[in-house]
Design a protein around this nucleic acid. Structure first.
Length: 637
RNA sequence: GCCGGUGUAGCUCAGUGGCAGAGCAGCGGUUUCGUAAACCGCAGGUCGUGGGUUCAAGUCCCACCGCCGGCUCCA
């Protein structure tokens, strides 16, 4: 993770700090993996505990252990500064750790600085982490006496007779370990932020104050991580969206993006891509109403289960709602005529604009919105067609993501406790998903019990260049919801009506989120086929404007999105401007080019590539765009 | 929705009770330029919105809205 930023498309990015040579698999020449781990294991009883139970509060892997230990040191520092604070929990998490504290006052940035300073003192003091065990009842009494109600509550929920505590210096915490040997091992860390968090994650419980931090084995690793955070900030689609004039939000429509001309190019190109692909695969596109009478939502069950998220509108004493999903209306389309077994699979695709009343605090740029457009489809199949259809869908998903150089991860979610449908139906559906994943040679993880109540699903995450995962696509088998609730049927070979199986699927997920992810993935430097402006013509001076205009006309004639920048500015200024705007190609023209019928080419990340005949540039550009190439190829060959 | 932070020019930000500021962007002029920022000038503001305190509010107080970081939710 974090090693993938060196792509050629990176524009104006700073160089990462020199990576440390050790990286888990790659040898680890000077990382103190072994000594640290031995330190963790030094105490014989802890080793025994590991061997016997394998139960720890964190992964006994060195980095998690270090982060978990850092959270204890932070808690110790907080207790030194604010003795009245109550301890809750402090786990290691990806890239760091947090600790939750019971305290009426939130922590200020100044508090964090003070806490961090005390943590460094504690590290200098070099306290050993010592494990001890107490009978359960004694431990409860111990924490009650120390005024730690949360800790006591945790132990009350533990079934074991004995619990383990860890001490470093004056600080004692309920903990299963493991820990590093001494606070002296905690060096490369930083507190990052504080926020509210509910006790045990339940909003009915009191709100605690959480402090997040990060901790690493070596200072270089910390520096590298902090650099990664900076880099992620530069790639933030909200910033790039504004800088590149892709989209904007206005406070009159929270959670609903306005697409600006540049961003709308992205939407249109993606739509075009999707339609070309789906048309070739037997999909039939439909479009259904946004505003629908409550009666439909009652029939679909959304009124019962999803009402709180729906925008309601009263029209002439009748209640309507903006659709939060497209499936019920797709079912109406299916149901409007008698279907034969020969008609299946029936694939209805829809660019479905949905509205969901997400709670205000959850809205985030394009990735969490109230109005979005799904690249939705509902596929109706006979049970015997299910597996083959899923197999094809997985192929399609991979084909699409490859175009965007995104790497997908597949997660299979299986039957939950509360579910509809027979065991036999679930067996068949889950087997179909397993087999389809295998048929595609895909590695996947399984989330038992995580499926929707109506059928198992495969969710697909993509990783962006910074290694962050985003859920985009989903393939959900629907055994009961649409088929049963809407009484869907097809006439089978025996002349009898049968229930089809429905598949709900989206590959981009939503255009909004997908464009947000692409923006971050490419850092705004989109492949040429997606780039809002594909080429800029730059005359050396205004004397060369006429030839520049001819070049520009040729580009536009070839339906290339081109601009002519003949502003009264020096060439260097205009080149810089095109670079900043991440325009893939700059075509510089002066007297020499005019005489040769050529242009001097420059890629957005590179130096002058020299004069190239205009005809060749046009041909190369056309090829690159029509093939939806991921990299810049014009003039290279 | 909850906890906290935040909101000043198109953008990035300064201004801590006493005349609303800078850089970039924009516009005008000079310059006519060979590969990442020429020079001079001009214009640009209900300081998120609404109340309040004060002789005086961008600044202090209250409420609301948006945004940011989390929590929760994510049929």
């Amino acid at each position: 993770m974090g090693e993938r930023l060196s792509d050629a498309e990176e524009v104006g990015g700073s160089k990462p700090p020199e990576p440390t040579t050790r990286d888990g698999a790659s040898g680890g020449r000077d990382r103190p993996v072994l000594p640290l781990f031995l330190g963790v294991m030094a105490e014989a009883h802890e080793e025994r505990h590991l061997l016997l139970s394998g139960e720890f509060d964190c992964d006994p892997e060195p980095l998690s252990t270090l982060r978990h230990s850092t959270s204890h040191v932070m808690a110790q520092a907080v207790k030194r500064l604010f003795p009245e604070v109550k301890l809750a929990i402090g786990p290691a998490i990806e890239d760091g750790f947090y600790y939750d504290f019971g305290r009426s006052q939130p922590f200020t940035p100044e508090d964090l600085a003070r806490i961090e300073a005390v943590m460094r003192e504690i590290a200098r003091e070099g306290h050993r982490f010592e494990r001890m065990e107490l009978p359960r009842a004694e431990a409860i009494a111990f924490f009650r006496e120390r005024g730690e109600p949360f800790k006591a509550e945790i132990i009350e929920g533990i079934a074991d007779d004995r619990v383990s505590l860890y001490r470093q210096g004056e600080f004692v915490d309920l903990c299963r370990g493991p820990h590093v040997a001494s606070t002296a091992e905690i060096r490369a860390f930083k507190l990052l932020s504080s926020s509210g968090a509910y006790w045990r994650g339940d909003e009915k419980n009191p709100m605690l104050q959480r402090i997040y931090g990060t901790s690493w084995l070596a200072q270089e690793d910390l520096d590298r991580y902090l650099w990664r955070l900076e880099e992620a900030k530069k790639r933030d689609h909200r910033k790039l969206g504004r800088d590149l004039d892709l989209f904007d939000f206005f406070d009159v429509a929270p959670g609903a993006p306005f697409w600006l001309p540049n961003g709308m190019v992205l939407v249109r190109e993606l739509e075009k891509f999707a339609r070309e692909s789906l048309d070739a695969r037997g999909y039939q596109e439909i479009s259904t109403p946004l505003l629908v009478n409550k009666r439909l939502w009652v029939e679909s069950g959304h009124w019962e289960h999803y009402q709180d998220n729906m925008f309601k509108v009263e029209v002439e004493d009748e209640l309507f709602s903006l659709k939060p999903m497209n499936c019920p209306e797709s079912a109406l389309v299916y149901r409007r005529s008698l279907r034969s077994y020969r008609d299946l699979p029936l694939r209805f695709s829809e660019m479905g604009r949905c509205h969901r009343n997400e709670r205000s605090g959850t809205l985030t740029g394009l990735v969490r919105v109230r109005q979005f457009t799904q690249d939705d489809a509902h596929i109706y199949v006979r049970p015997d067609q299910l597996q083959d259809e899923i197999t094809q869908l997985l192929e399609l998903v991979q084909e699409w993501y490859k175009v965007f150089t995104l790497t997908a991860t597949f997660k299979l979610s299986t039957r939950p406790e509360k579910r509809l449908g027979t065991e036999e139906q679930w067996d068949t559906a889950e087997k179909a998903l397993h087999e389809a994943l295998r048929a595609n040679g895909l590695a996947y993880s399984v989330n038992p019990g995580d499926a929707a109540f109506y059928g198992p699903k495969v969710d697909i995450d993509v990783q962006d260049v910074l290694g962050r995962a985003w859920q985009v696509a989903t393939i959900q088998v629907d055994l009961t919801m649409l088929p049963e609730r809407f009484q869907l049927e097809y006439i089978d070979t025996d002349g009898q009506p049968k229930r089809p199986v429905a598949i709900h699927r989206a590959i981009f997920g939503s255009y909004e989120r997908f464009i947000g992810i692409l923006t971050e993935h490419f850092a705004g430097a989109f492949p040429t086929w997606l780039a809002p402006v594909q080429a800029r013509v730059l005359p050396i001076s205004q004397k060369h404007e006429e030839y520049a205009r001819q070049v520009w006309e040729r580009l536009r004639g070839a339906r290339i999105r081109a601009e002519l920048d003949h502003r009264n500015e020096k060439l260097g200024y205009r080149i810089r401007d095109a670079q900043v705007r991440k325009v893939p190609y700059m075509l510089v023209v002066g007297e020499r080019e005019r005489q040769q019928g050529a242009v001097s080419l420059r890629h957005r990340t590179e130096e002058d590539l020299g004069a190239i005949p205009l005809e060749r540039v046009l041909a190369d550009l056309a090829r690159e765009i029509s093939s939806r190439a991921a990299t810049l190829t014009v003039g290279r060959s």
